[in-house]
Nucleic acid binder design. Structure first.
Length: 720
RNA sequence: GCGCGAUUAGCUCAGUGGUAGAGCGUCACAUUGACAUUGUGAAGGCCGCAGGUUCGAUCCCUGCAUCGCGCACCA
């Protein structure tokens, strides 16, 4: 081979797509078709399914490149590794994405109707979903796309129904009126996860409440007050506990427009830990229908009445009194403050910085309110998961996450699993249209006998399940549970789950108890929380801040390998990454170094087939570089095994550039012998093998140019 | 408020109980010998602050400060 036959610099974009096609058509992403598949041990990772709401971001890129590194490494180590890809239908986020599209066309989902709207969502999912697949493939992710799953595909829907029925049979599912986070725009409950807090300059209002003064940021909720609470240790209010206090306040039944009038109320006083002695006056007004804390107080003191004064449309209900009924919450607040002031009941107003919960998707202020919802009892399920964690059935990386999760799981509320959305898994529960019959029938089909009160048919509830209800089942439903497939036997439990910090609790914990409940075994041996990519100044990336990094733009600029190199170079342990493109530049240079040294070696060694076992040279330089090479191999293996991907890449880089290129190749040039040629070939091929998981394209490309028996580095000679 | 993590060269980060390293950037020199996407050399750091342990601390301990994250609170 002549030097002139090989270009002077490495042209990534000329080869990367071809190489991926070559891998894909080889079928080796599917572990079953690997050579000697039957004798290989199974190993599996389930891809955290990206939400189908747009393009993948740089965090997805990092997450999946990390998994891909592990998978490629395992493939080379002689395992039968399954990396199962898939996508999440993303419930509220998916629906909202389509609603935004409709808005541009000037229509609403209500105008379309449920059936047509859901069709639109499916169209959107197919289109955006295939983009996501393309983007992941473009990054060189060696997942088995023939096994790809979607949380709304037919088999998955079936599994979700079975899970619901199972929980129902065990008595874990109930329907209840609870205070939930209500988004009045989405017209649905939302989970804590879908809620974000916005810092706001608010006001703290001090209101005369009979003999005491109470402080509140939400004076309008006083219309729903049904009690007062003080801390049991609070000496100041000891005498009031257990008695009622008569207070004077606005009469809400005075017509709007007329001057406000006073009215007397009797409110019971209870002792409850929730009252903080040091905040405000130390007395809290209890509004059980519109505040989670207050609702809990209500639960602890059943004598407290519940009055609902805010409706699901975000307006005051009739129970709030004719003076305020129909007003939006903010309007009612203004009105009542004015009335209190006129009546001389407003003591003072202070400024207060506090945060307000808003809907993550549409920024509507969340109203906590009482609503009929479906719940899953968490006590037994959470207990199972906690015990498994305590018994170290799973390993946490980093280890301190173990205690964090146990703390979090120690006081869980029951899981509100119903959502008033159109996009998602329909809840298999039926009820008579007449609504006079309170009876619910849970099952895949309606009951055959009609309702006792009328002759109308049963109808399935409009509600769908929380999107996490289905993603909780990911590690086994992807393997076709409830069918007892070979895949399920081979690949469950998975080796590890790699997840973003954001969804650590809500997703990981739910997969844990789901796996234990349905498979009797933890779904993964290791829970790895990968680094979060922040911008250079350490802020979260977000569209509104304009600091997001598009991985596709990076690959356009630097090529895929250099992008992978640059991402992993920065991935030190589980530390957050303050994003910088510098290492991508370094990556590009390194690829060129790798290319040119390979080019030089190819010319040196000629074209005859070679033995690529470790040579036993006698000269010092060769012995030394082989020793360093052994060290590098060990460092790479150890680093990957301990999730120190950046360290592994640094070790390989450092060895290759310095020990090998700068020192050994120069040395070998001076006095080329058969021994140095053997050593050059061995060190190069060993480096390629160790670098391959990080920068798979160039290593494969060079490998295929080398004269030896095994083509395809992807499945080349097994490492130890 | 509680917990976790971070704080080292201009920037992004490694690192070790014995007076510090990488990548990128900067400056000077080298020009075609695999590679100028290179090579050689240089500049640049009281390793956040204050105590303590130690013969010796950037590293261990305590406190503080700043930043970030999580949980709680936000009456």
């Amino acid at each position: 081979m002549k030097l002139e036959d090989l270009p002077k610099s490495y042209e990534a974009e000329a080869h990367e797509d071809d190489i991926f096609r070559l891998w894909e058509s080889s079928g080796f992403f599917n572990p079953d078709t690997l050579p000697d598949a039957a004798s290989r041990k199974p190993f599996s990772i389930m891809m955290a399914p990206p939400n189908i709401t747009g393009h993948i971001h740089v965090g997805h890129a990092l997450e999946n490149i990390i998994s891909d590194i592990i998978i490629r490494r395992k493939r080379a180590e002689g395992f039968r590794p399954l990396f199962l890809p898939g996508k999440d239908h993303a419930g509220i986020a998916g629906q909202y994405a389509v609603e935004k599209e409709l808005k541009k066309e000037g229509i609403t989902r209500h105008a379309l109707g449920r059936e047509k709207f859901v069709e639109r969502v499916w169209e959107y999912m197919r289109e955006i979903g295939s983009n996501i697949d393309q983007e992941l493939k473009h990054l060189g992710i060696s997942a088995d796309w023939s096994r790809a799953r979607f949380t709304m595909d037919e088999g998955y829907q079936h599994a979700v129904e079975q899970v619901f029925l199972h929980y129902h049979e065990k008595g874990y599912i109930y329907r209840g009126k609870r205070v939930v986070n209500w988004c009045s725009r989405c017209q649905s409950t939302i989970s804590d996860l879908e809620m974000v807090y916005k810092e706001e300059k608010g006001k703290l209002y001090f209101i005369q409440y009979g003999p005491v003064v109470i402080a509140t940021t939400r004076p309008e909720t006083k219309l729903g007050d049904t009690a007062l609470a003080v801390n049991p240790k609070d000496e100041r209010y000891k005498d009031h506990v257990g008695k009622t206090i008569t207070i004077e306040s606005v009469d809400p039944d005075t017509k709007a427009g007329k001057s406000p009038r006073k009215k007397e109320y009797a409110l019971p006083v209870v002792a409850d830990e929730a009252a903080d002695m040091s905040f405000g006056s130390g007395i809290i007004k209890v509004t059980p229908a519109h505040d989670l804390t207050d609702y809990d107080i209500g639960q602890r003191h059943p004598e407290i009445e519940i009055r609902e004064i805010i409706g699901i449309d975000g307006r005051m209900t009739e129970a709030a009194g004719i003076r305020y009924a129909g007003m939006k919450v903010a309007e009612a607040r203004e009105a009542i403050v004015k009335d209190l002031e006129e009546l001389g009941l407003l003591v003072k107003i202070e400024d207060l910085d506090h945060s307000v919960g808003v809907c993550e998707r549409c920024e509507t202020v969340i109203e906590p309110l009482l609503s009929d919802q479906w719940f899953v009892k968490m006590d037994k399920l959470a207990d199972k998961a906690r015990k498994a964690i305590e018994k170290n059935k799973v390993t946490f990386v980093p280890p301190n996450r173990k205690d964090m999760m146990l703390d979090w799981a120690a006081n869980l509320r029951d899981w509100n699993i119903s959502r008033q959305l159109w996009w998602g898994h329909r809840i298999p529960a039926w009820r008579c249209e007449c609504k006079e019959n309170e009876e619910w029938h849970v099952g895949l089909v309606p009951p055959t006998d009609s309702c006792r009160k009328c002759k109308k048919p049963w109808r399935q509830t409009e509600d769908v399940l929380d999107t996490w209800f289905s993603s909780a089942l990911w590690p086994f439903v992807t393997l076709h549970w409830p069918d007892e497939t070979d895949d399920l036997k081979d690949y469950y439990p998975t080796a590890l789950i790699s997840s973003a910090r954001e969804i650590f609790y809500l997703w990981i914990f739910r997969m844990l108890f789901s796996g234990l409940e349905f498979m009797d075994e933890v779904p993964f041996k290791t829970i790895y929380t990968h680094p979060t990519i922040l911008d250079k100044s350490g802020r979260k990336m977000s569209k509104s801040k304009g600091n997001v990094v598009d991985p596709m733009k990076l690959t356009d600029t630097y090529g895929i390998d250099a992008t992978r190199f640059g991402l992993i170079w920065q991935a030190m342990g589980t530390q957050d990454i303050h994003w910088t493109e510098d290492p991508l530049r370094a990556g590009k240079k390194f690829l060129n170094k790798l290319w040119n040294s390979s080019r030089f070696i190819m010319v040196q060694i000629g074209t005859e087939p070679r033995d690529y076992r470790r040579p036993k040279p006698k000269d010092e330089a060769s012995k030394k570089v082989l020793e360093a090479c052994d060290k590098m191999e060990k460092a790479v293996a150890d680093s990957i095994a301990s999730f120190e991907f950046g360290q592994g890449l640094h070790a390989a880089y450092d060895f290759f550039w310095n020990d090998f290129c700068a020192v050994y190749i120069e040395e070998a040039k001076k006095n080329p012998t058969r021994e140095t040629r053997d050593t050059l070939f061995y060190v190069l091929t060993t480096s390629l093998k160790n670098l391959h998981p990080f920068i798979p394209f160039i290593t494969e490309y060079i490998w295929d140019l080398l004269p030896h028996a095994e083509k395809r580095l992807l499945i080349a000679e097994r490492l130890q």
